[in-house]
């Protein structure tokens, strides 16, 4: 029976057998494998991960490998939590709702948080997008983390009109922009800005910003903001 259950088609059952036989580590590994390959339902992936965590805890196995797998489980559950917290509008745009979602990739969740579909995005959504960078697949050659990071900040810039400068003090103008509100929030929540915030040159060269890049008022405000940051950090 054990061998029959180990065959690929029947692995979705074998963990039930393992629980009966108190083979908790075995059940935990199978459940984690099933979770890794689940892409159809986010809720199903979540329950597979949760069961994998509970069987691991029941196994009393404290090997370094187990510790590593438990970290993977918590990361994956955290990622699903970020997905569940997406605004309903963004999900609807994909034809999904909170009760019926497929498994999204971290870069897809990031995009949904920062794109124009999420019209009410605040600094909290941009901060979440930055948090999600840690879950990107490091081995995937198609993903350029630096590029994605610059993309998030460029989207933040584009949320505001930088062309008018009504206040006499530039710092008064920029403190209300989503870009600098996000910087502020990230800083206060302990994110390492030397790693997460692109340099002022990178921002000013971001192609996504289009003509705004060359607008003197924008350049002036961004530079003033960065100077201010350097003086307080």
């Amino acid at each position: 029976l054990g061998q029959f259950l180990e065959s690929d088609n029947n692995r979705y059952l074998s963990w039930l057998h393992d629980i009966s036989n108190q083979q908790y580590t075995q059940a935990h590994e199978t459940l984690l494998d099933l979770a890794r390959t689940e892409t159809t339902f986010a809720s199903k992936k979540k329950t597979l991960l949760s069961l994998s965590k509970l069987t691991a805890l029941a196994s009393d196995n404290q090997s370094p490998d187990m510790k590593e797998r438990m970290d993977e489980i918590d990361d994956q559950l955290d990622l699903i939590l970020h997905q569940e917290q997406l605004p309903p509008d963004s999900l609807q745009h994909l034809g999904m709702d909170t009760n019926n979602m497929s498994v999204l990739k971290p870069q897809e969740i990031i995009e949904l948080y920062i794109s124009e579909i999420n019209a009410v995005a605040t600094e909290y959504e941009f901060k979440k997008a930055l948090d999600l960078l840690q879950y990107l697949d490091q081995e995937d050659d198609d993903i350029d983390i630096n590029e994605l990071r610059l993309h998030i900040w460029s989207k933040a810039v584009l949320r505001d009109n930088w062309k008018d400068n009504k206040a006499s003090d530039p710092l008064d103008t920029i403190k209300d922009t989503i870009f600098f509100k996000t910087v502020d929030l990230a800083y206060n929540e302990g994110l390492d800005l030397t790693e997460y915030l692109p340099s002022v040159e990178e921002i000013l060269q971001s192609e996504e910003l289009g003509d705004l890049r060359n607008h003197p008022n924008f350049q002036f405000l961004i530079k003033a903001g960065y100077e201010h940051l350097q003086s307080v950090m």
């Binding site: 809720s43 329950t47 991960l49 949760s50 069961l51 965590k53 509970l54 029941a58 009393d60 939590l81």
Partner: peptide, 19 residues
């Protein structure tokens, strides 16, 4: 789905379960 809540790091219910 009860497993989702018990395993969650938000509610930490699993910490109240002995082996």
């Amino acid at each position: 789905q009860l497993a989702d809540y018990i395993a969650s790091e938000r509610y930490l219910l699993y910490k109240e379960f002995n082996p």
